[in-house]
């Protein structure tokens, strides 16, 4: 589904990603861990199409297409979704407000008919239940005055509505209380099937108890320096990143 090869990227001349290789197949869950500033969000942003990063080398294919050639909205319509680490506030625009356009753009792209207002509302209601999000949140300006947890839950709600093929969750667990964490994990799990895939960026093993990964990768200094199964996350939780750092430094 997704194949990242030797991806190098920089911002304002500063190199941040230094050759990333990552393959995600349908049906898989990947976890990306790594210390602060190692480049996790940068990778996620580049996948979603943020233009402020310059890709200096490498390639990304998504569903057999050159992802880097696609505009952000084309990526979304192809089925890529990013739950932002820091979702932006948009005064005057409510979630329901833009989500209807989003859903119908994606449907049009898939050759499906646009949803009418009633059907859309039904869809919204159903997904609201799934992620236990409140009506009032959806009719407020997007993220404007939302608590940290509310912002994250709103991201997952959008994911549930848009039903992406590849969902990238950038620290969606940060700032969530334990109940909210379960709700989010539950939301993700109920959307999983053999045709889609999830990449979770996280600092904590905790989330991975609920969303069990098939692969765990450690990103360090803009490179994936170690990959393994879910036990790697447990090991990181127990030992921290120092041993990874040492190994990585030995390797260079």
């Amino acid at each position: 589904m997704l194949k990242v090869e030797n991806l190098k990227a920089s911002v304002e001349g500063k190199s941040i990603l230094n050759g990333i290789d990552l393959t995600v197949n349908a049906g898989e869950v990947h976890a990306i861990m790594g210390p602060n500033g190692s480049g996790k969000s940068t990778l996620a942003s580049i996948l979603a199409g943020r233009e402020s990063y310059e890709v200096t080398d490498g390639s990304i294919t998504f569903l057999n297409q050159d992802l880097l050639e696609l505009a952000p909205e084309e990526r979304a319509r192809e089925g890529l979704f990013l739950a932002f680490q820091y979702p932006v506030e948009i005064p005057g625009v409510t979630t329901t407000n833009f989500l209807k356009t989003a859903v119908n753009q994606i449907r049009e792209h898939r050759g499906q008919e646009a949803l009418d207002a009633v059907t859309f509302l039904k869809l919204i209601k159903e997904k609201m239940k799934l992620v236990k999000i409140d009506d009032s949140l959806l009719s407020r300006s997007l993220n404007d005055g939302f608590s940290g947890g509310e912002k994250k839950r709103n991201e997952i709600f959008q994911m549930a509505v848009l039903e992406p093929k590849l969902a990238i969750l950038d620290e969606t667990d940060s700032g969530l209380d334990i109940d909210a964490l379960k709700v989010v994990a539950n939301g993700v799990n109920s959307l999983r099937n053999k045709d889609n895939a999830v990449v979770v960026v996280t600092h904590y093993q905790r989330l991975l108890d609920y969303i069990v990964p098939d692969f765990v990768h450690v990103l360090y200094n803009g490179k994936i320096v170690k990959s393994g199964d879910k036990d790697l996350a447990l090991k990181l939780e127990a030992k921290g990143y120092d041993w990874i750092r040492e190994n990585a430094e030995l390797a260079t």
């Binding site: 909205e73 990526r75 625009v93 833009f98 989003a102 859903v103």
Partner: peptide, 23 residues
């Protein structure tokens, strides 16, 4: 950032800017 957010949800640039200007 706001334009990018909306585009990342599938709105094209015109729809995104239109929505933001309207708001």
């Amino acid at each position: 950032e706001q334009v990018f957010y909306l585009r990342s949800r599938g709105l094209d640039e015109k729809q995104a800017t239109g929505l933001l200007l309207y708001a």
